[in-house]
Simulated assay, not measured.
Amino acid sequence: MTRPGTKAHLHRYLDFGRDALLWKLDGLSEYDVRRPLTPTGTNLLGLVKHLSGVEAGYFGETFGRPFPEPLPWITDDAEDNADMWATPDESREDILGLYGRVRAFADATITELPLDAPGRVPWWPDDRAGVTLDAIIIHVTAEVHRHAGHADVVRELIDGAVGMRVGRENMPSDDRNWWTDYRNRLEQAAKTAAAAAASSEAAVGPAGDDGAAPASDG
Rank of each mutant, 00 (worst) to 15 (best):
Y99L: 06
K49T: 04
K24P: 02
G218D: 07
Y31S: 10
D116R: 11
S173F: 06
L10D: 08
R18T: 01
D175C: 14
T75N: 13
K49I: 03
L10M: 11
P125Q: 08
I110N: 09
D94N: 13
G211V: 00
E143F: 01
S91K: 04
A8S: 10
D116L: 12
G27W: 04
G100D: 14
P172D: 13
L44Y: 07
S200G: 05
D19R: 12
W124P: 06
R183L: 03
M1C: 07
G53E: 04
G160D: 07
G64H: 11
L14Q: 01
L28A: 00
L44V: 07
I110Q: 10
A108R: 15
G27H: 05
A196S: 12
I95R: 13
I158N: 05
G100M: 12
A215I: 05
I74S: 05
D32G: 03
N184W: 02
V48A: 15
E79A: 14
A213S: 03
A129V: 07
W85G: 12
E79S: 10
L14Y: 00
T132H: 14
D217I: 05
H150T: 02
D26P: 04
E169R: 12
A213T: 02
S216I: 04
D83S: 15
R92Q: 09
S200Y: 03
H145N: 15
E30A: 15
G57V: 09
N43E: 05
G64R: 10
R128N: 09
D175H: 15
G97S: 08
D26S: 09
H145E: 11
D210A: 05
T6P: 14
A82C: 08
V48T: 08
L186Y: 01
L45H: 04
I136L: 08
P214F: 00
F67M: 09
G205T: 05
D217F: 09
A213F: 06
A56F: 00
A148F: 09
V166N: 12
D77V: 12
A142M: 11
V54P: 06
